[in-house]
Design a protein around this nucleic acid. Structure first.
Lengths: 343, 343
DNA sequence: CTGAAAGCGCTTACAG
DNA sequence: CTGAAAGCGCTTACAG
């Protein structure tokens, strides 16, 4: 271990500036932080020298005294890795890009088997945004006792959260399918264990109900949390007595798999079966046909998550708020009028 | 500003443990860090109490004295946002997942207009991995003076780097196309300004040369760095006198756009034109037809990047190493034997 | 084997 | 308006 290597180049400190300007370190601190009244001459002089010397505060020292780390944590469950195909990556990026201008850095952490969050225990962060429903209530509650948190795409009584109008988005998507003339509308999801997916299912049910269409159990299928979930679910649908003329799928990735499976069965989308997804992921514009889906404003959600966290860091007594973001149906090529054949 | 809120619940410190055990704080420190010889009774007692109290060291204080932050930075140029469709996201995730078991956290930062890296100036990180060729040589060099760094998918004399065998991968892809009987093989890229893409182009050229095929300028097109790059490039190719029977595209995303454009022109892939991509992104298994491409082991690259950085943090005098990862051709459905019509 | 002291780089009452 | 002192929570020679 060579410990001295980078120590030769000692970073410049407040003391160096003080010596150079001929003033006390505490004065330098005040000048740089704009605290207390002081002659603008010395203040300017100090600032100028700091600039010249390329001074940056050592955040470890600063944080130790101010009890602020200058970073926030962004935590997701390991299950969402690879993020490449995750719903959450635009949210994470938005958090980073809005945190930076505010002088905050973001520590990106992944959670496995509900371990306690080292970044908060070690005081590396001033707050954390917990993304997804995999975060257990116990973890969230215990965290809340030591640090401000905001939940994204998850909800828990008494804690700040950023949510999506899953119900409304699903309702609208299914209503649209009904308007196109469809009556046999399937619902496919990876799993029902996810709050968001359950909400989307509820929206599906409500739309059917509103338009007087009876719920058909055989038109509902769960594919499981794995690659190929969509085709597994489609197989189940095809085993039923009634074939759907349209399928509402709870997320885009699964919708793409459903489309592939439909094609593999020798049918066409949307001529034989219309498919509508949810999320408006990048892939929605890559599949053939282009996917009709429900847009979720993930960038705005990430921005808002950070803003809210920042507010809570400033004042932890703020009362918990739940912000629900609206969704929007984006009509592309995977949906069309009710299939002729099955009419 | 309510500053006292979370301060009421003071985190437990080394002093608390010391008091409880009836020993000096310095002894607690030694026990917990396993330094110096000491009676195993007191050591055990201390460890047990620390455990009971749920003690975690305050990394701000620890870092201030040890000059180690316990975090590393992962930096990419803002241009690669959204990472969702980026080549780099699996690399970033791999860095995070290998850093965590080593007790390091990762600060994810985005670089805009070559600003200097605040995370290193503020001593928040012990090392940084710089991803992509957008990182300027000046920035890398200046950083290297204060902290260990490793470059990923980029190269610079005298600094550690993790690279991809772009040349070899491209060579193999084009050779494969030649083996299928193709002679009119196009090359499409977003841009030639990127080192990786230039290397892939070089591999393309070398394969043609090796098999005695003359380079045809009209078969080479750049689409520009924007959405739709692939179709723009394809249009250029179609303006030429000779139509390609196969196209080697420098990355998967652009390849997908090329496929779409070919379909839009009323042609089929691979019957009329074979398409081969590079990267083996998730989308390669989503497009129709499934994309033949060159696999890049991004996960392993990320793991290796962190390991190398860790080694450098331990000993900054290690001599710079360049690690080149091999690639592998993955044959799927977008490539086939030479088109009949144009033969 | 263990304690007391000094120090890491900063901030913040407290004097003057 | 500005300096000296104490303290944030830890580690590390230095004594004993």
């Amino acid at each position: 271990m060579i410990d001295w290597y980078y120590d030769l180049i000692m970073a410049i400190t407040i003391k160096d500036i003080a010596k150079r300007v001929g003033v006390a370190p505490s004065t330098v601190s005040r000048a740089l932080n704009g605290r207390g009244r002081m002659s603008s001459v010395t203040r300017e002089k100090i600032r100028q020298v700091a600039q010249e010397l390329g001074y940056y505060p050592n955040m470890l020292a600063k944080g130790l005294t101010t009890r602020k780390a200058g970073s926030v944590g962004v935590v997701i469950d390991r299950r969402h890795i690879p993020v490449e195909r995750s719903f959450y990556s635009p949210i994470i990026e938005a958090i980073e890009s809005t945190a930076t201008p505010h002088g905050y850095h973001v520590i990106f952490a992944t959670l496995k088997n509900h371990s306690s969050l080292k970044i908060v225990k070690e005081r590396k962060v001033d707050g954390v945004v917990l993304i997804g429903t995999d975060i257990s209530d116990e973890l969230a509650s215990s965290l809340l006792e030591e640090i401000p948190i905001v939940l994204v795409d998850n909800h828990l009584q008494g804690v700040d959260s950023i949510a999506v109008d899953n119900f409304g988005g699903a309702y609208r998507a299914v209503e649209y399918l009904i308007e196109l003339g469809h009556r046999k509308i399937g619902f496919v999801t990876e799993t029902m264990r996810d709050l968001s997916f359950r909400e989307r299912f509820a929206g599906y049910q409500e739309a059917l109900k509103k338009y007087g269409i009876k719920l058909d159990e055989q038109l509902i299928a769960e594919g499981g949390r794995r690659r190929g979930s969509g085709s597994i679910a489609l197989e189940k649908l095809f085993e039923g007595k009634t074939l759907p003329t349209a399928i509402f799928v709870a997320n885009d990735y699964t919708a793409v798999e459903v489309i592939w499976a439909i094609k593999a069965a020798g049918l066409n989308v949307p001529e034989d079966i219309s498919v509508v997804g949810f999320d408006d992921n990048d892939i929605a514009r890559i599949v053939d046909p282009l996917l009709t889906t429900v847009h979720v404003p993930r960038k705005r959600m990430g921005e808002e998550a950070f803003r809210r966290l920042l507010a809570l860091i400033g004042d932890p007594t703020l009362s918990p708020t739940k912000i629900v973001f609206p969704t929007e149906l984006v009509i592309r090529d995977s949906s069309g009028y009710k299939a002729r054949s099955t009419s």
